[in-house]
């Protein structure tokens, strides 16, 4: 088998000239005067339902209101009293299959594309994907304008995993017809928390 030296050495031998790194701080990136407003527009376009001006204490009633038939609710958030499964202390990821609603908290949102940053915070991150529906919490003051700002803000912990999610899972692989709910969540409700 090849070693790193073989392949890196070959690259070194074949590089003809070394070009400098461009300056990126002068990118004239779009900044929104009201990032929250743009975030709502983009997240809605990505297929999300938006619930505004709420508190963490309202979560159980929001879940009931948005997903009245939900039986299996997975969350590690202490405010979700109606949770039936905790993704932090189940034995294996497979046990989360059949979850009707997964409730997860994001760190911040991005206005230009409606995405939310979720670093892994529980043992089984499968909850973000395997649940039929996702309820995502986000502080309405924590919205940045664009991905340049977003990548300055991303944080990781020891789990070593994080994901931007913009709306429910989707596909247009059959004849370019857009269908929500490919392999992961079929719907996503964003709860904007009032600070």
């Amino acid at each position: 088998m090849s070693t790193s030296n073989d392949i890196i050495g070959k690259c070194r031998k074949n590089i003809r000239q070394r070009l400098p790194r461009p300056c990126l701080s002068d990118i004239d990136a779009t900044v929104y005067t009201d990032p929250l407003e743009e975030f709502i527009i983009q997240a809605t376009a990505a297929g999300c339902r938006i619930v505004k001006d709420r508190k963490k204490e309202d979560l159980d009633s929001i879940i009931k209101e948005c997903y009245p038939d939900a039986k299996v609710i997975a969350s590690a958030l202490p405010e979700v009293k109606s949770a039936t499964v905790n993704p932090d202390n189940i034995k294996k990821a497979q046990d989360l299959n059949g979850t009707d609603v997964g409730v997860i908290e994001g760190k911040f949102g991005v206005a230009e594309n409606g995405a939310i940053w979720f670093p892994q915070e529980v043992k089984e991150r499968a909850v973000d994907f395997i649940s039929e529906n996702i309820v995502a919490l986000i502080d309405e003051d924590e919205i940045v304008s664009n991905m340049h700002q977003a990548y300055q803000k991303v944080t990781f912990n020891d789990y070593g995993y994080g994901v931007f999610i913009a709306g429910p899972s989707k596909t247009a692989d059959i004849a370019q017809v857009l269908v929500m709910g490919a392999q992961a969540a079929r719907s996503m409700t964003i709860v904007l928390l009032k600070s």
């Binding site: 990505a46 991905m147 991303v154 990781f156 995993y161 994080g162 994901v163 931007f164 709306g167 989707k170």
Partner: peptide, 16 residues
């Protein structure tokens, strides 16, 4: 699309 639905960052194996 302004972004894909998922932009996933993998650094290490899951616990266990």
């Amino acid at each position: 699309q302004p972004s894909t639905t998922y932009t996933s960052h993998f650094r290490k194996a899951r616990p266990g």
